[in-house]
Each structure stands twice: as structure tokens, then as C-alpha cells.
């Protein structure tokens, strides 16, 4: 691992940890409902010590919105990424290990999904399922799993030809046990690298959906804040810039931390 990856990785990890802490203790940091009208509308930052970052055109506390938005963004994207990786692992392992018709069918489905732009598919799914956090998670998961499935499959194809897989067959392990206990762990390392990218993408997709008003309107999220700040962009640009920065910071920190982790893992493999 180069010095640069180490430093950027550390920065990413620190930012990510801070965001997670903020999300966990949102209620303690900024008590109350962030959607509540608490002050005069369009207060500029630092004007009132109660609202360090000012208020929106509806008199909502911007700081509270950012804090609570972290909770929504991170939960939605982490759950969605977990689902993406799980689907990817399941499809990729079965496809790569069993081969033959199973592989053909699963890969054609994967390609079919991949041929539709992920965001359009998520958009369509949410408009069918209704605007809620759950449907956003489902939409992201169902639209973004193909890359991880293909990656896992490629790794499984490589690993399954190694001697230790034959050794497990000789020992009498069942095919399913071989696939998930022997082959899969050996194929997981690049998947870990993919987690960072997946979470980062999920944050963006979630924000975009919220921006388009397709997320739960009763939860304050960054995308929603950008959307509602758009109306007063000329008067109070910070209402758009601040949540936008939060989105950028979150997805950047996840990718930086993910890259460093991947580099670390590949070093461990060589040693």
C-alpha cells in the first residue's frame, strides 16, 4: 500500500466514522423532529445561535436536517449495498460453481438487468412500489446487483480450479458446502473492494430519488433538502450547497475507506 492510499484511506475512515456517529446519535445531537418549523424562515447561518447553519424557507433547522439526513442516507445505502452484495454473492457463486444451464440462465438474467440503466430501473421500481424507505432500498438492490454478481462469478471460476477445491471433494464435502465454505471465501476479497463503491453509489441513488420526491416525504434526507432548497437557490444557495456537500463527503469517504481496505487485503493475500 502506498503512503497516499494510506493517508486518503485514513481520512476516509475518519470522515465515515464521524458520519456514522452523527447518524447514531442524531436525536442527541439535534433533538426533536427536523421537519418541525422551529424558527423564522431563511435565517442565514450564524445569525441565531440556536440554528448554527440557519433555517430553510419553511423555518426548519438546517443543522438538524443534515444530522438526521445522515441517518437516512447511511441506513438506506448500507442496507441497499448489503442486499446488493448478498444477491451478487448468491447469484455469482451458484452461477460460477454449478456452471452449465444454471450459469447460462443466471447470466442471461444478469445481462438483462444490466442492459437497463440502473437509475431508470430504480426509478421505475419506486414509482410502482410507492415512495417509502423500504421501496428505495429494494429498488437500489434490484437495480445494482449485476456488477457484483459478475465479479463474484469471475472469482469463483478462478478459485474453483484450484487444488484445494479438489482436496475438499476428496474429503467428501458436498457441492454446496464446497461452493460456500471453500470457494466463496477465497473469492470474497475483490468483493470487499466493491462494497465501498456500492455504498457510495447507493448514497447517490438514494439522494437522487429523494431529490425527485420519490423517497419517504416524512423523513428528512439530504436529497430532499437539496430538492426543497432549489426553489430559493438564488436567495439562499447554502440550502442546496450544504446537503450537496454532505452527499459528496459521504460517498467520497466510503470510496476512500473502501479503496484502502482493498489495498490492505490484497497485500495480506500476497504475504
Amino acid at each position: 500500500m502506498t503512503r497516499l492510499t494510506l493517508i486518503t484511506g485514513l481520512i476516509g475512515t475518519v470522515i465515515l466514522a464521524a458520519l456514522i456517529l452523527i447518524a447514531l446519535f442524531a436525536q442527541q445531537i439535534a433533538p426533536g423532529d427536523p421537519l418541525q418549523m422551529v424558527g423564522r424562515p431563511l435565517l442565514s447561518p450564524f445569525a441565531d445561535p440556536r440554528f448554527p447553519l440557519g433555517t430553510t424557507q419553511l423555518g426548519r433547522d438546517v443543522w438538524a436536517g443534515l444530522v438526521h439526513g445522515a441517518r437516512v442516507s447511511l441506513t438506506v445505502s448500507a442496507t441497499a449495498a448489503a442486499a446488493v452484495i448478498l444477491i451478487g454473492i448468491l447469484v455469482g457463486t451458484l452461477s460460477g460453481f454449478l456452471g452449465g444451464y444454471v450459469d447460462d440462465v443466471l447470466m442471461r438474467i444478469t445481462e438483462a438487468v444490466q442492459s437497463i440503466p440502473a437509475f431508470l430501473l430504480a426509478l421505475a421500481l419506486v414509482s410502482v412500489l410507492g415512495a417509502s424507505v423500504t421501496s428505495v432500498v429494494v429498488a437500489i438492490a434490484l437495480s445494482s446487483w449485476p456488477p457484483s454478481a459478475r465479479l463474484v462469478r469471475a472469482e469463483v471460476l478462478r478459485v474453483r480450479t484450484l487444488d484445494y477445491v479438489d482436496a475438499a471433494r476428496v474429503a467428501g464435502r458436498s457441492p454446496l458446502a464446497i461452493a460456500f465454505l471453500e470457494v466463496l471465501p477465497g473469492a470474497l476479497q475483490p468483493v470487499v473492494a466493491l462494497i465501498g463503491i456500492t455504498v457510495g453509489e447507493a448514497i447517490l441513488v438514494e439522494s437522487a430519488l429523494a431529490f425527485l420526491g420519490l423517497s419517504d416525504p416524512n423523513l428528512q434526507s439530504w436529497g430532499l433538502m437539496v430538492a426543497s432548497g432549489r426553489a430559493t437557490l438564488r436567495v439562499a444557495p447554502l440550502l442546496v450547497i450544504l446537503p450537496g456537500l454532505a452527499i459528496a463527503l459521504a460517498s467520497l469517504s466510503v470510496s476512500l475507506a473502501g479503496d484502502a481496505l482493498a489495498a490492505r487485503l490484497s497485500e495480506g493475500r500476497r504475504a
Binding site: 484450484l162 487444488d163 484445494y164 482436496a167 475438499a168 471453500e182 471465501p185 477465497g186 493475500r269
Partner: peptide, 9 residues
Amino acid sequence: DPLASFTPH
């Protein structure tokens, strides 16, 4: 290859 015949993890 003895190294390849053992599960690395």
C-alpha cells in the same frame, strides 16, 4: 502443489 491444495483462509 501443496500450497494450492490447502484452503488459504
